Amino acid sequence: MAVAEDDSPFPPHVVTALTEQLPAVAESTIATIVVEVPSYAGAFSGDMGRTIERAVQVALGGFLNLATGGGDPSRPIGPALDGAYALGRGEARSGRSMDALLAAFRVGARVSWRHMSGAAVAAGMSAEGLARFAELVFAYIDQLSASSVAGHADELASTGRARRRHLERLAAVLVAGRPLHDLTAAAERAEWLPPRTLTAVLLPETHARAVLSTLDVRTLVSAEELPAGDLPGPERVALLVPDAEGRGRGPLLAALQGKDAVVGPPRSWTAAQASYARAQRAVQLGLRAEGTAPLDTEERLAELVLRADATALADLRTRVLAPLDRVGATAREKLVETLRSWLLHHGRRDRVAAELFVHPQTVRYRMGQLRDLFGDRLDDPRTVLELTVALAVPAT
């Protein structure tokens, strides 16, 4: 609400009386604020107290100048509004909400009105003038409050943007595996308290916001674009989640249900790049989770190892399964299936039969065929190792 600058209802002798009261009103206002807004008690001691007292006098003087029709009409209360704006920014920088400052404004309005209205009445102000005086006082306080709120919001927005940039930079240097001095410097700039470990999570960008609301507030989001050519599927972002090891891993996996997420291993926060690289590799290799559960790379280590060199695995499979080239495709498929189960169950025929849903005699028959094809090599430890590796991951 803007304060109008029409003709003043204040006679000169009333203006003089009010002007003489300004120092006393300022002193009384500050004393009352200290009592009624305890969080400001410390701020009003020493030099800071004298600075604030002068600011209160400027605000009161600016009001009186406006209310009585004096001053520059182009900037009627500019200094006072600027001061209120600066107070709001200062509150934000101190980490405080606007509650205390707005309470101080309300106290100031009440105390100022009580003292100044008393002085105005004593000086002979009319009832009509007193009503107008009250309207101007509270309209002025509204303007000061609004200016402080704007300053508080602007400071939060400014510092918030700066901190977000620092946090994004920290995530970037962690993902890149930069040297320790770069990591610690980035963490200090971001005012980020390092955890014991970080766990990388890759998930579609569309799910990131919902997941972040359930995770540790120190979770970092990498703003780096993941190479689209190397990471199939939807566009993904990387989260670095603090202290999600041990018992903390279960809640993380639960929070990622249905989010098409890939979870790396927990690593020391300075080695977060290793967790990120593991998760990224799992996506690149096309590993898939079952159902709606996230892909937990800690449960898929054997596949990650075996798929690390896809061409070498294919060459190994071709070489060690060469004896099966002498049978037809249908027979080959059944024999490969039986051989894989036989290797995994260490030759226990009943378990192989149960897994394949066939009679134990069928397993005996097929193993006889395999021995005819492979000969004594099925008893050679090296051949058994190579067959186990070759058949551990189904061919794609």
Results as ranks from 00 to 15, higher is better:
Val25Thr: 12
Ala26Ile: 05
Ala26Val: 06
Ser28Met: 08
Ser28Glu: 13
Ser28Thr: 12
Thr32Ser: 12
Val35Ser: 11
Tyr40His: 08
Ala43His: 05
Ala43Asn: 01
Phe44Cys: 00
Met48Pro: 00
Gly49Ala: 05
Glu53Phe: 02
Ala55Trp: 00
Phe63Arg: 04
Leu66Lys: 02
Leu66Met: 13
Ala67Ile: 03
Ala67Asp: 08
Gly69Trp: 07
Gly70Gln: 15
Asp72Ala: 05
Pro73Ala: 05
Ile77Asp: 15
Gly78Lys: 13
Gly78Ala: 15
Ala80Trp: 10
Gly83Lys: 00
Tyr85Ala: 10
Arg89Val: 00
Glu91Pro: 06
Ala92Met: 01
Gly95Asp: 03
Met98Pro: 09
Ala104Trp: 01
Arg106Cys: 05
Val107Lys: 01
Ala109Ile: 11
Ala109Tyr: 06
Arg110Asn: 08
Val111Lys: 01
Val111Cys: 01
Ser112Cys: 13
Ala119Trp: 09
Ala120Ser: 02
Ala123Val: 02
Met125Leu: 15
Gly129Ile: 06
Arg132Cys: 07
Ala134Cys: 08
Leu136Asp: 15
Leu136Gly: 15
Leu136Glu: 14
Asp142Asn: 10
Asp142Leu: 10
Ser145Met: 12
Ala146Asp: 14
Ser148Gln: 05
Val149Thr: 13
Gly151Ile: 00
His152Tyr: 09
Asp154His: 13
Leu156Met: 11
Leu156Trp: 12
Ala157Cys: 08
Ser158Asn: 11
Thr159Glu: 10
Gly160Met: 05
Arg161Trp: 08
Arg161Gly: 14
Ala162Trp: 09
Leu167Thr: 07
Leu167Phe: 05
Leu167Asn: 02
Leu170Cys: 06
Leu170Gln: 02
